[in-house]
Amino acid sequence: MSLDKATVTHIAHLARIEVEDAQLETMVGELNNILSWIEQLNEVDTDGVAPLASVTGHALPLRADAVGDGAYPDRVLANAPDRAMDFYSVPKVVE
């Protein structure tokens, strides 16, 4: 399948990346090249093969549901581009 400009614009919106119109054409070509190269996976018969997400086979550990770290808002907020009191601040979302 081949991506068109409208689809790439939609993906860029989903990814929250601003793409200038001038870059869009190039991006459409590059993404289509990569996707058509990836299509070769369709040659592989994967019927009945379970998807692999974890390579080591180790079970994920459980721990007590207790706070183990925290209570230092200044450190958490130290890199904030903009803050108000103990909060991150962003452009107004709700009128």
């Binding site: 996976l41 592989v44 998807p51 997400a53």
Partner: peptide
């Protein structure tokens, strides 16, 4: 699909 092929590679 990729995760299934990954299983075959393993």
């Amino acid at each position: 699909k990729a995760q299934r092929v990954r299983a075959l590679i393993k």
